[in-house]
């Protein structure tokens, strides 16, 4: 398949996943639309073009892994897993309801395809380090992907893990920073600024790239570049828009966690092409 075909396919899938996100949050009556829409393209690229996985065998030992460090964005991953065939689409509206396989934040024991429990911010790179080191010990060659938010880079453990990942030269660890510039309480630069972010990771010895996190060609190219530098861990700073794809949610932090009304849901679906 030509790369342009792949990109076109991913764009279609990402629109579907955005529809799933807003619909499940609307139907379930709870969830985080802004953060989920922000990383929807990264998640789509990973599950539908990058990661080698087997939905029929979620525990396959050689599979690539994803840790969603920003666990509150799990509607994006739940939608991708359902679309990939890990479980039935009818599970999606059960999000956050009693007895559901879809917990408020990812639970590796309850949801097929979730590689690691997450939701408490800052821990994904550290867990990813362990999973990447396990590949070495077990003689396997999978890649470990982590999606962190930008705000959670304020957690100290992020930098503990960044230091150790370089020390152990885990080239099979690839981290995306979903850099939308907004955290729960407001703009990251106003709360506790992250900039300059690239020199920080470079100083920790990581391979760094900055991309448009909504451009599939850039996402795929960045991952290919990261894989081509096998001796050190890679970070891909993905510039994103919180709430991307739905006009009235984009860059509006009131939608960090909010449920759409029926009218808002219908408008969102219309903007996302039905």
């Amino acid at each position: 398949m030509m790369i342009s075909d792949t990109v076109s396919h991913l764009e279609t899938m990402a629109r579907q996943i955005r529809r799933d996100i807003i619909t499940m949050i609307y139907q379930a009556g709870d969830g985080h639309p802004g953060p989920s829409l922000s990383c929807a393209d990264l998640v789509t690229a990973l599950y539908f073009a990058i990661m080698e996985v087997d939905p029929a065998n979620p525990q396959w030992s050689r599979r690539d892994r994803l840790i969603l460090s920003k666990g509150h964005a799990c509607p994006a991953v739940y939608a991708a897993l359902a679309r990939k065939g890990y479980f039935d689409l009818s599970e999606l509206p059960q999000l956050r309801t009693l007895g559901s396989i879809l917990q408020g934040h990812p639970d590796m024991l309850k949801t097929p395809g979730i590689d690691f429990t997450s939701g408490s911010l800052g821990n994904g790179i550290s867990v990813g380090l362990g999973i990447a080191l396990a590949a070495r010990i077990n003689g396997l060659h999978y890649h470990t992907y982590v999606i962190t938010g930008d705000g959670e880079l304020q957690e100290g453990i992020i930098w503990e893990a960044a230091m150790a990942a370089k020390h152990y030269q885990v080239g099979n660890l690839i981290v995306f920073v979903d850099y939308n510039g907004i955290q729960s309480g407001g703009r990251t630069e106003e709360i506790s600024g992250l900039e300059p972010i690239v020199p920080k990771f470079e100083a920790f010895g990581w391979h760094c790239q900055v991309i448009d996190g909504h451009n599939f060609t850039e996402i795929l190219t960045a991952v290919a570049n990261a894989k081509a530098t096998p001796a050190i861990p890679s970070v891909i700073i993905a510039n994103t828009i919180k709430g991307k794809g739905i006009s009235f949610i984009e860059n509006n932090n009131a939608w960090h966690k909010r449920v759409p009304t029926k009218a808002e849901w219908e408008q969102a679906l219309q903007e996302l092409g039905g």
């Binding site: 550290s126 990813g128 362990g130 010990i137 150790a164």
Partner: peptide
């Protein structure tokens, strides 16, 4: 090959161990 020292960083040690355990170690 089965000795990992992450330095003076206990949160990282425990979370990293959790990652290792998730892969059957």
């Amino acid at each position: 090959d089965r000795f990992i020292d992450v330095g003076i960083a206990e949160q990282n040690a425990v979370a990293c161990a959790a990652g290792l355990a998730s892969c059957g170690l």
